[in-house]
Simulated scan of single mutants.
Amino acid sequence: MSTAEPRPTFLLVHGAWHRPTCWEPLQAALAAEGWQSRTVTLPSGGPQPTPSAGMYADAEEVSAQLRRIPGPVVVVGHSYGGFPVTQAAGDHPNVTRLVYLAAYVPEEGEYTRGMHGAPQTDDLEGSVPGFEDARGLLYQDLTDEQAELAIGRLVEQSKRSFHEPITQAAWRTVPSTYVLCEQDRALKPAMQEKMAARTGRVERIARSHSPFLSAPAELAALLGSIASTQD
């Protein structure tokens, strides 16, 4: 990125069972480095998620946010957020890069549960419970106080969101980088390695599934480096 070009804005897309508040420490760290960022509220999650809101509704919300952002955008999808990002981002010419942060990188026809071997189902109503051990799987490198706050913010997630398949894969046309979390217990590093092979570049961070909470300054520096580099 030359000095004459405007800095891109980061669009941060959260994962399942989360809300945009999870990004607050990272947004502060990005702002300290001079980067602008925005978030998305995915409709498939919430205290009482709408049963009809699935991955396609999430992708529509990502698209709506992208239409509101002037200038270039780097889209960051975390965990499940990789699905709506993959579905939506290819339709927007202002997206200069995708960043998959410990995220799914699906190809056409794949759905979240299917990537873990679960069969497709016609029963898409209701919500899916979260992790029984969120502390150990999502937040093992947070302090007890930080983990308690993060767990208290988790919400319900619609079943539909895990079963709607991708119909278009933005990573095929948009430059993409994978940030692999080497200490991840929720989305195992071995699976991340396989999905990362679909992207153009892989970066690694020795953190858990949620580095936006455990290491926001470190992650902000890495994202800034990714956004400033051309393939």
Rank of each mutant, 00 (worst) to 15 (best):
P216L: 00
Q140N: 14
P70L: 00
L137D: 12
S79T: 13
P175S: 13
A32L: 00
V74R: 03
A190E: 15
P211Y: 09
G34F: 00
A102L: 00
Y100I: 04
A227K: 02
D91W: 02
R204I: 04
F10W: 04
W17S: 08
W35R: 12
T173R: 15
E108I: 15
P211S: 09
R19W: 01
A221V: 01
T86D: 02
H14Y: 02
P25R: 05
P84Y: 08
Y80G: 07
P8K: 06
P51A: 08
A102Q: 06
T121Y: 05
G82E: 02
A170I: 05
S228M: 00
S44H: 07
R201V: 13
R97D: 13
H116S: 13
I226E: 06
K188C: 01
D184Y: 02
Q157H: 15
V75T: 12
A196W: 06
R153I: 00
A221H: 13
S225C: 00
L138I: 07
P165N: 12
G109R: 12
G77R: 05
T86P: 05
Q27G: 14
D91K: 14
D144H: 11
L12R: 11
V99C: 03
F212K: 06
R135F: 08
L213F: 03
Y139T: 14
S225F: 00
Q65L: 01
Y100T: 11
E193Q: 15
A220K: 03
G46I: 08
Q146P: 10
A32E: 14
Y139S: 09
T199S: 12
Q48I: 07
A197M: 10
A170H: 10
W35G: 10
P216I: 04
G46A: 12
V62E: 09
Q157F: 06
Y111F: 15
L213I: 02
E182T: 15
P216C: 02
A190Y: 06
F162N: 11
H116Q: 12
A59H: 10
C181K: 05
E132P: 14
T86G: 07
S228F: 00
E193H: 14
S176N: 10
F212G: 06
Q87T: 11
P216R: 09
P72D: 07
L98R: 13
A89T: 13
R198S: 14
I226M: 02
P20H: 07
A169W: 06
G71E: 03
